[in-house]
């Protein structure tokens, strides 16, 4: 019995020491991680809605009908438009994307935040290559009637291209529904 107690105490002590060390490291890294994430989001938002200055998040109750695909809608404080974060399924799993919508309810730009598309094919949609940039640029100025035929779709990644086009149409509809 004594032995069991001793083992428990030793294990507990080691867990406590490790947790304490982790707590200390976490204190140090917490600030930088938060800054990194905020900067990243802000940069992604400004990239899709160039004339915006700062953003305010809209209450999720306002777009409850689109809750399954839309994570977040933020409105630009200077009235430049909206930025919507949406998650939808691509060819290989879900894609998370930021879409800028200008005040005329047209797409102002898209930026893929997270994806798991096939490297070399669907991945191009999110990459910084020339092809990826021209793919994303082809969305600018489109309204909710957008289909895969209106954009510079990627050869070999039809499903990814279709999914992105569908998501942009869905986002514009959601923003229009906000009124």
């Amino acid at each position: 019995m004594n032995k069991v107690i001793k083992l428990t105490v030793v294990l507990f002590l080691i867990c406590a020491i490790v947790s304490a060390v982790l707590g200390a490291v976490n204190e140090v890294t917490k600030g930088p991680i938060e800054t990194q994430q905020r900067e990243k989001t802000e940069k992604a938002y400004k990239a899709v809605l160039p004339y915006a200055d700062s953003f305010t998040e809209i209450d999720p109750a306002a777009y409850v009908a689109y809750k399954s695909t839309i994570n977040k809608i933020s409105v630009a404080d200077n009235g430049a438009g909206y930025v919507v974060e949406t998650t939808f399924s691509g060819a290989q799993g879900s894609i998370t994307m930021a879409v800028g919508i200008d005040s005329d309810m047209r797409c102002a730009g898209i930026s893929i935040i997270k994806h798991s598309e096939t490297s070399g094919l669907g991945e191009v949609a999110a990459s910084s290559s020339e092809r990826g940039v021209s793919f994303r640029k082809s969305f600018i100025g489109k309204d909710e009637t957008i289909t895969v035929h209106d954009i510079d779709a990627i050869t070999g990644a039809t499903i990814t291209s279709k999914a992105v086009a569908g998501a942009v149409a869905n986002v514009i509809n959601a923003v229009k529904a906000l009124g």
Binding site: C15, V18, S19, L22, G23, V25, N26
Partner: peptide, 10 residues
């Protein structure tokens, strides 16, 4: 949340 990996493996 930073203890997730440790907690999960245990």
């Amino acid at each position: 949340a930073f203890l997730e990996t440790l907690a999960f493996i245990l």
